[in-house]
């Protein structure tokens, strides 16, 4: 009997957490189908008084939405792949090689996480535009090809791999490439995935840097499109902003739902022992 109450209490806690976390999403979804008037005057009801697609229609007629999604997707995927590869290599070097100044190098790299982004913004803008990459997708993604956080996470997880395993493989004559792809990557796959998600989502929602670089509407990313509907002087068109928000969420959420099983599986069956 006691155990049952115990479980009930736990479920109550988790359901409450889920409700608190998901309420804003449901709120956004419901408001994206409301008229502005409805949104202002029908605050409580999550069901629109008059269901309208007008907000979505407006966004689709004003923006080349598929293109914007494509741009965002291109930037986020490229950034994620490069960040993973560069971090993987650096982390491998940190864990399995010994060289002078290793710890100092690591420490310096880690400290850069604490530099406010304002420091790099303008100099990088000048660099990018001196390369003639202003107003281009490449210009947005180039400074983001490496990330300390990735080195940090992958290093943490690689340290869980027994050294003897690597040494044994080396004795067997396996090349470093084979060791990385054959031993390291499979062993730390869940960590690679969680780092990848982090990179993808961050890049997907990045809004300060692309604003600086991109000018032409055909090159906009989703978070820039969102900002077109937010204005302090004219007022934010809440329902349209919510429609854009819903559309910015759809792709990461779908990706997550598709891969969720796989992601969670790798999390739970990971072989790091």
């Amino acid at each position: 009997m006691k155990i049952k109450e115990h479980q009930l209490g736990l479920h109550f806690l988790f359901i409450l957490t889920v409700l608190v976390l998901l309420f804003p999403l449901v709120y956004a979804l419901s408001n994206s189908f409301k008229t502005l008037n409805d949104a202002f005057n029908n605050v409580f009801s999550l069901i629109p008084r008059e269901f309208t697609l007008q907000n979505y229609i407006h966004v689709f007629t004003r923006l080349d939405f598929m293109r914007i999604v494509g741009n965002t997707f291109f930037i986020s995927t490229t950034v994620t792949i490069f960040k993973i590869i560069t971090s993987l290599l650096a982390a491998y070097s940190l864990v399995f090689f010994n060289f002078k100044g290793k710890n100092t190098l690591y420490f310096i790299l880690l400290s850069t996480m604490f530099i406010p982004f304002t420091v790099t913004m303008i100099p990088n803008y000048l660099t990018i535009s001196s390369w003639g990459l202003g107003d281009s997708l490449i210009g947005v993604l180039i400074p983001q090809l490496a990330d300390v956080l990735g080195i940090f996470l992958l290093r943490q997880s690689m340290r869980g791999i027994p050294r003897s395993l690597i040494e044994y493989a080396q004795l067997e004559g396996a090349s470093t490439y084979n060791i990385i792809t054959g031993i390291v990557i499979p062993l730390i796959r869940p960590n690679i995935i969680s780092t990848g998600i982090l990179f993808f989502v961050n890049s997907w929602n990045e809004y300060v840097w692309p604003v600086l670089i991109l000018k032409t509407k055909s090159k906009f990313t989703l978070s820039l499109a969102l900002q077109m509907f937010i204005s302090s002087e004219g007022g934010t068109d809440f329902t349209i902003a919510m429609a854009v928000s819903v559309m910015t969420m759809i792709i990461p959420i779908t990706l997550y739902l598709i891969f969720q099983r796989y992601i969670l599986d790798t999390f739970t069956t990971s072989g790091v022992k």
Binding site: P24, Y27, I197, M242, T248, M249, P252, L264
Partner: peptide
């Protein structure tokens, strides 16, 4: 179920989150 649901807000941009909370 809980894992899936709890993770969801993470994919959302904080700009959207901030506007939403400003209303809520």
């Amino acid at each position: 179920f809980y894992k899936g649901a709890i993770f969801l807000p993470y994919v959302i941009s904080l700009v959207v989150g901030s506007i939403l909370y400003l209303w809520i």
